[in-house]
Amino acid sequence: MKAIEIEGLIKEFDGIRAVDGISLEIEYGEIFSLLGPNGAGKTTTISILATLLKPTKGKARVNGYDVVTQAAKVRHSIGIVFQDPSLDDRLTARENLDIHGRLYHMKKDERKKRIEEVLEMVELRERADSLVKTFSGGMRRRLEIARGLMHKPRILFLDEPTLGLDPQTRRHIWNYIEKLRDEGVTVLLTTHYMEEADKLADRVAIIDRGKIVALGSPSELKDSIGGDVIKIKCSNADKMAAILSSNGFNAMIVDNEIIIKAKKAEKEIPRIFSLAKGIEIKSIMYKEPSLEDVFIHYTGKAYREEAGDEMEAIKRRWRMRR
């Protein structure tokens, strides 16, 4: 049995496909990341797995239970940290955890003991009896993670856990997520931060427009695009790309830059210069591929972390804090 099994999952909203035939399996104990731009279908997928939405077509099993017919059992098996804040900020940290424990039918002694454990884990013990209203964004996030773990779920869903947090806090949260690996919790993490998936995940599924475009460990994915990435800026990108393509390179234009892959980039660069007759090369660089290059390779388009949407999310969160 796998922790999560998804088969041909489809979700339509008014005829628009948010999730378009996703299939994948996640092992117990794995940290698995769904990586993709905003609107790729990550949150919809998590919502289906958490039994908050019903799939239009396809099947999904979580901890061996069907998400449609055995919803209550699925809910007992999972913890979830939502993308939007969901703490009660008029309650203290301890009260938030206690109510959560009650909702998951934990006995009184069990709740008491577990509250200390999870607060210890996210280093919030001293603030246990402060109102959540007084917490910073990072502290709230940590408390939400603690709450997600409160009832000892086998599987934890983290939907954009570091969205809108500053880099330092983000690193802090990453540390906690890495600790989960030691606890044997299976983690399904959605993110649109490449770095986050690269750093944390054992395996990554890159998703775009509701479809999985690539799946594997971060290093497998980076190897799969075949060597280094060379980026060229020049006076006539179209013409240059055509020349390169006719000379055996696989050239792609993304954002007015030419991108080619090469096994040994340092040997190919002199050839590129000799081919560029009459075209001025403004800059040329090469690097080892990142997950961003993997995304570009499989979707043929630039990856944007969509700052606009992120600002919206930060604003939303800020409003809620008041």
């Binding site: 958490a50 209550a72 809910r75 969901s86 009660d88 959560h100 998951y104 809620m320």
Partner: peptide, 13 residues
């Protein structure tokens, strides 16, 4: 709107 309802909706109750 304030999200806590979601916390309750996903609980096994």
């Amino acid at each position: 709107e304030f999200g806590f309802l979601k916390e309750m909706l996903v609980a096994p109750i």
